[in-house]
Amino acid sequence: MAESTEQHGPLEQFEVKSLVDMHLGGLDVSFTNSSAWMVLAIILATLLLTLSMSGRAMVPGRWQSISELCYEFVANMVRDNVGSEGRKYFPFIFTLFVFILFSNILGMLPYSFTTTSHIIVTFALAFVVFLGVTVIGFLKNGLGFLKLFVPSGVPVALMPLLVVIEVISYFIRPISLSVRLFANMMAGHTMLKVFGGFVISLGLLLGWAPLVFLVALTGLEIGIAFLQAYVFTILTCLYLHDALHPGH
C-alpha cells in the first residue's frame, strides 16, 4: 500500500516499533511505541482525574468541571441504557470510555501514535466487553440468558432459522465493535496524512487548498475521536443491558 520509495507514506504512522526488546518463552512481548502511548494515555487520564478532583470543591473549578462532566456523561449513559443495576459496572465502563477517549485524542497530536488505529487493540477491548457481558449474563440469569437468542412470538417453523441468525448477530458484536473504532481511526489518520502530503507536493502556489481542507478535517477527526469513544461505550452499555434483561 504505502509506497516505500516515498519518504513518508501515509501508512507509515501505523508502524509498530519496538522500544525495549523483551521475549518471554518464545513470545515477543517487547515494549513498543503502541504500548508507550497506551501507558501515556493511562497516566494522563489518571493524573487529570485525580489532580482535578483533589480539591473536591462543592463549586467546581475548570479542571474539576472537566472531570465531573466526564463522570456525569458516562453515569447518565449507564443509567439511561442499562438502568439502576448498571451502577455496579460503572467503574469499568468509565475506565473504558476514558481510555478510548484519551487514546483517540492523544493520536491527534503530531508525531504521536494512535493505539486505537490497530484492530488488535480495539478487538482486545471489544473482546473483554463481549466475554464480560456473556459471563455476567449467565451469572445473573443462568440458562435464562439463552432466551436472548429466542425471539418471542414467532411461529415454531421459523424458530431454528431465527435462532441461528440471533446467535450469529450476537457473535458479530465484538467484531463490529472493534472494526468500527479501528476503521474510523485508521481511515481518518490516513486521510490526514494523504492531504498533508498534498500540501507539501503542491507547494506554495497550490498547497493552500488542501491545507484548508486539512484544517477542517482535523476538526472533524477530533469530533470523531470523541464520537467513537462515545459509540463504543454506549454499545457496551446496550450489550450489558441485554445481558441483564435477556427477555426482550
Binding site: 456525569e72 447518565n76 439511561d80 450469529i168 458479530i172 467484531i175 463490529s176 468500527r180 459509540v231 454506549i234
Partner: peptide, 29 residues
C-alpha cells in the same frame, strides 16, 4: 426526562453505529 448525555444521540452517532454493523456481519459470515 432523558439526560443531556443521551440526548446527544445525534444522527451521526446512530449512523456510525448502524453502518458498520451491516458490513461487518456480511464480511465475517
Amino acid at each position: 426526562g432523558k439526560s443531556r448525555a443521551s440526548g446527544s444521540n445525534s444522527g451521526v452517532a446512530v449512523a456510525w453505529r448502524i453502518s458498520i454493523e451491516l458490513a461487518v456481519a456480511i464480511g465475517v459470515c
